[in-house]
């Protein structure tokens, strides 16, 4: 390995290498985005189950509460390994990307569900009483009152989580998914300078994450303002 980084730089960006970097960056975004979209859908259901006061739903309430609290207290790496080796032991032949997508979805479901629960808790219970007396069914109350009011509150922190999660998905490299970190590992095994490669990997993450983080901050300000206009 040569300490002459600059001469190595062009070799890192040959046509095929650029394709690899691009694919890796897209995979990184995909992992975070899929995780957050599934996390939003399932997380909403779990948050609603946790909020429910119905007796018939008590088991669902306890189970979803346990799921959220436990998953948020286990390292990403352990969850990932559980799914990776678990699939092998149970005889499922799954691609690393599939396993990583499942693991990221499970993890982000727990975190997003907690954000949504916080959003639902800010709703005034009195409005729900008004809805009940007007004979809204629980589902109608959710659809017409709770969800429309919770969405503008929870979208900015969910987006913020999505941006944070982009960085967490670096761990997917540990099961061999070709995302940015793994692309870096591949480049170093091809003999490129680790200094240069990891500087590039850091820069690429920054290029992906920073504009989105700025957008998130803007989103938060705008939604907060629009609620008070």
């Amino acid at each position: 390995m040569s300490p002459d980084f600059l001469s190595d730089l062009p070799k890192l960006f040959t046509f095929y290498n650029i394709l690899l970097w691009g694919e890796a960056a897209l995979t990184t975004l995909l992992l975070s985005a899929v995780g957050c979209i599934i996390g939003m859908i399932v997380g909403f259901v779990l948050a609603i189950a946790r909020q429910s006061r119905r007796r018939a739903l008590i088991p669902a309430r306890i189970l979803s509460g346990l799921f959220v609290e436990i998953v948020r207290r286990v390292p990403f790496l352990i969850t990932l390994m559980l799914f990776f080796f678990g699939a092998q032991v149970l005889g499922f032949d799954l691609a690393p990307l599939t396993i990583a997508l499942i693991a990221t979805s499970v993890i982000s479901t727990a975190f997003v569900s907690e954000i949504i629960r916080g959003g639902l808790e800010t709703l005034k219970p009195a409005q729900l009483e008004a809805a009940a007396v007007m004979n809204f069914t629980p589902l109608q109350t959710l659809r017409l009152v709770s969800i429309p009011q919770a969405l503008p509150i929870v979208i900015p922190p969910i987006f913020g989580y999505f941006v944070l999660f982009i960085k967490d998905t670096a761990l997917a490299s540990q099961v061999g998914v070709l995302e940015l970190t793994q692309a870096g590992k591949i480049m170093t095994t091809k003999g490129h300078s680790a200094f240069l490669v990891y500087a590039v990997v850091l820069a690429l993450y920054f290029i992906v994450s920073y504009p989105l983080a700025r957008l998130g901050g803007y989103l938060e300000n705008r939604l907060v303002l629009s609620r008070h206009s």
């Binding site: 005034k124 409005q127 009483e129 008004a130 009152v145 009011q149």
Partner: peptide, 10 residues
């Protein structure tokens, strides 16, 4: 009609 009106904010 409630003391706190309880209109739907959305």
């Amino acid at each position: 009609v409630f003391q706190q009106y309880n209109l739907f904010g959305n």
